[in-house]
Computed example of a mutant assay.
Amino acid sequence: MVADIGALPKIVVTDLDGTFLSPDGSVSKINSDAVAQARRAGITFLVATGRAPRGLDPIRQMPGPNPVSVTSNGAILYDTADDSILQAVTIDPAVAQSVIMDLTEAIDGVTFAFEQGHRLALEPAYRTWDPVDDQPGMITGKALDLVRDRPFVKLLVQHKELTADDLAARAEPVVGDRLTVTHSAASNFGLLEVSAPGVSKASMLDRYCAELGVRPEEVAAFGDMPNDLEMLQWAGHAYAMADCHDSLLGTATVIGSNADSAVGRTITSWLS
């Protein structure tokens, strides 16, 4: 389903995994062509993702200018063209240390990692998609030692037996308002993404759009997971993917799937 958008938005912002990227992690021709068409119509294209800056290769490979991107769930505003961090909201190490100790006591089996922008620090038991030895810049150690290593923007909390929803239900009361808890993992193990208080894709987008003189009602946003919820609530035009997380239902117009390039098809429908 694609709703009539009325006046064209000034900015289109999209999540990547499960939304703009195809299931194989690539950018489809339909989506790439739609972005090019939107740019010709004067619409700015932005990315807002849970990925760290080092995970933006699919966007870098698109034709046309590389966009400014909101990464790490809103903790980093990143210039993809210049490969530079424009803004970063880090986590207080003392607060993180307290949260780590409380979660370890409350939930048996949790492991931790720390997203630092261009580098990931992790406990030896933390599961990564690829072997740590194959990923330059990664370091391992005990969580309470790593938390003091250098500034970081995201605390990752993993559990190999609980789902992300179950882990969130158990972790959120423990963390409280000390940090912001969300998740975007659709895997068979629990992974939470924890940021500084008040940090979300929406918080960084609001700040950046204000600098550009663009109001929320002039923004169209696409997403599929709980870490997109605040962004979809903030944007004037909100779209959720067909297989989105239940928390997004009722917040956004549901369109097709990323396998069908629904983001690109929706953008093209406005311009047609």
Rank of each mutant, 00 (worst) to 15 (best):
D145N: 13
L146C: 09
F152Q: 06
F152W: 11
K154E: 14
L155R: 08
L156P: 03
L156C: 08
V157G: 02
V157D: 02
H159T: 07
H159D: 15
K160S: 13
E161C: 02
E161T: 13
L162Q: 12
T163A: 13
A164H: 14
A164V: 02
A164S: 15
A164R: 13
D165K: 15
D166S: 14
L167Y: 06
L167S: 04
A168F: 09
A169Y: 02
A169D: 13
R170H: 11
P173R: 11
V175Q: 04
R178W: 02
L179F: 07
V181I: 11
H183Y: 15
H183A: 00
A186H: 15
A186D: 15
N188K: 13
N188D: 15
F189G: 03
G190M: 11
L191T: 06
S195M: 14
P197M: 04
P197I: 01
P197E: 11
P197K: 07
P197L: 06
G198Q: 05
G198R: 07
A202K: 07
A202F: 10
M204R: 14
R207C: 05
Y208L: 04
Y208N: 05
A210P: 00
E211G: 02
E211L: 05
G213H: 05
V214E: 03
V219H: 09
A221R: 07
A221F: 00
D224Y: 07
D224R: 08
P226K: 06
N227G: 03
N227W: 09
N227F: 08
L229M: 08
E230F: 00
E230R: 08
M231F: 04
L232W: 11
L232C: 08
L232N: 05
Q233K: 14
Q233A: 01
A235I: 02
G236C: 03
A238N: 06
A238D: 06
A240E: 13
A240P: 05
A242I: 06
A242D: 14
C244N: 15
H245A: 14
H245M: 11
S247D: 15
S247I: 04
G250A: 03
G250W: 03
A252K: 04
A252E: 10
T253V: 14
T253Q: 13
I255M: 02
S257A: 14
S257P: 02
A259N: 13
V263T: 06
G264S: 07
R265I: 01
T266Q: 09
T266G: 05
I267D: 08
T268E: 14
S269Q: 12
S269I: 00
